[in-house]
Design a protein around this nucleic acid. Structure first.
Lengths: 329, 329
DNA sequence: CTGAAAGCGCTTACAG
DNA sequence: CTGAAAGCGCTTACAG
């Protein structure tokens, strides 16, 4: 029950003034007698007057402050922090604020909420969208860009996960691994599939097609337990973890069991350096910056995705490369 | 040069229709002939028509979607991520979006931008506000709450830093420390002052008033170098770091020099567990959740800070306690 | 210093 | 099915 806001008119009536005068008083115009102003201010406070933003924007010819929307899932993954940081950094030199929409809040209505808000652009940072939701977004009346998601037909900024998988495989291969294992997550994402494909392709080229796999929640204990199993079974001689967070569990297991084999993570989170984890680095901040930069470009040029011709989308797709970081594992 | 948006009228004129019809067509009203609708849709696309949100909101009597603003500095500190995560989590069960304002974007205008946006509430998460800026915010026409900042006269949700300092001191004291050192940061914040006061008070009670101090940037190498100096000078027998990120440098220095002394950090970032750092834990997510919850309470009850009487502010102040985590350092 | 009036762009009864 | 009109709450010339 949102109690109806009081209006200029309410204040004016109360004081026997005209709305124009009230408006002026509220804006500290010099064209109003101090006593009048004070009266107005008092009544305004009493009535808890809040100006109607829409009315003001309408008359002033601006469509509200400019802002970019970002659609994310709950901030579950450390990696998101870097991305968000990059976005915020890039946006700060522009006069755009950032509106965060949480897909986990109310999945069914969030896209409508976004449309209501009509952001100047939308950055979609969520892997699990349904086809229908994608289409819905594509039809929106503002530009959008996928962040960390590869789409051949939409503007996007993504990390080359296939290449990342290849890098990990090559590293393990060079360290003598012949029976590789992949520890993934239960979320079947494009990222994971690509990494695994890239990873497999390298081993396949060496005639190694039998890759162990298991998919678990991103939790250190789970990963530690799984790694311990792997170590004890002794059937694999190297592990590629979908992400560093999983690899940390691996490090722990290796320490505990005293056994040793090459492992490689993914992301290069801050703590990986300290743990001396070899990993495939994704520069999350750069991803954020590049995405935001692309977004702003689209907004400035008014490039609605829905009426871009397929040929020109290509120039709006940014691929960033991961990088091997060799440390002690 | 924001090119003026085309309006309903533009479309109507182009087709010799009335704006009402165009409006209906755009909303898929059944009261419009399919052919007319298609024409309208085509012209709308061609003209890149975007409805004026302000006008629509105005006529529909809603003041735009509800959202909470959060004023933050650049996402520089890991700790922020947990807080943000907590806020987003808390907000998701409510129908509020989150608008992020970066104080680092344009310090001079950001408060005005916020006022323009007129959020339903503002969460201020920034330690370094000027007195004047505080006053400005206090006069805003919406409720606000300070996050992780202790104010006796404003709604706020903060961690008890004095107590945290005491906890750290007590821990070191018990481990036999008599010549403590404090490694702080160059940013002279309320947080740091309180921690240091709490820390000092415990040692003072033991007749130890000579506490070494140095203030540096939050960078691992800097902290490592400083710690190395301290270790080599051999004048201090225990170190309290303002935050875990600084303590990590300390751990490194201890490892490198082979010398050893008790150290304690602050925050309990995820990697501290793995590094086995003893630390004073702040539950950043809880801080986020509690702050957001307080914010929503204020918004719902329409509690403007500017007209709360001092007596009742007390109930709008939430103090959260840090907690000692004993590990190997 | 104050008021009456116009108009921002839209939606929605009210008439046809 | 379509149009003419009113009105949302505000700001700002234009008159006094």
């Amino acid at each position: 029950m949102e109690n109806r806001n009081s209006t200029l008119k309410a204040i004016a009536d109360r004081l026997g003034l005209n709305v124009a005068t009230v408006s002026r008083a509220l804006h500290g115009s010099p064209l109003v007698r101090p006593e009048t102003r004070d009266q107005v201010l008092n009544v305004a406070a009493e009535l808890r007057y809040r100006p109607n933003k829409s009315a003001r924007n309408l008359v002033q010819g601006r469509n509200g402050t400019r802002f970019i929307g970002v659609l994310i899932p709950d901030l579950i993954h450390q990696f998101f922090f870097g991305v968000l940081k990059g976005i915020v950094q890039e946006l700060k030199s522009e006069s755009y604020s950032l509106m965060v929409f949480n897909i986990a809040s109310d999945r069914a209505t969030v896209v409508n909420r976004i449309m209501d808000e009509a952001p100047d652009g939308l950055m979609v940072f969520f892997y699990g969208l349904e086809q229908e939701e994608r289409q819905h977004i594509r039809e929106c009346r503002f530009p959008f860009v996928y962040v960390d998601y590869m789409s051949p037909v939409d503007p996007c900024c993504y990390m080359d996960n296939f290449e990342g998988g290849r890098i990990a495989a090559t590293y393990l291969l060079e360290r003598g691994v012949r029976r590789p294992f992949f520890v993934g997550t239960t979320a079947d994402t494009q990222q994971q599939r690509s990494r695994l494909e890239g990873f497999s392709s390298v081993f396949a080229a060496e005639g190694i097609s039998d890759i162990g796999k298991k998919f678990i929640e991103i939790e250190e204990p789970a990963s530690c337990a799984l790694t311990t199993e792997i170590l004890e079974a002794d059937s694999y001689d190297g592990i590629f973890y979908f992400c560093d967070e999983l690899a940390y569990g691996g490090i722990k297991a290796i320490r505990q069991t005293g056994k040793c084999l090459p492992i490689v993570g993914y992301d290069d989170l801050p703590m990986s350096e300290i743990l001396r984890l070899s990993t495939v680095r994704q520069d999350s901040e750069q991803l954020g910056r590049s995405s935001a930069s692309l977004m702003i470009d689209l907004v400035r040029t008014g490039t609605w995705t829905q009426d871009m011709d397929p040929g020109s989308v290509g120039s709006k797709i940014i691929k960033l490369s991961p990088q091997l970081i060799v440390r002690d594992t």
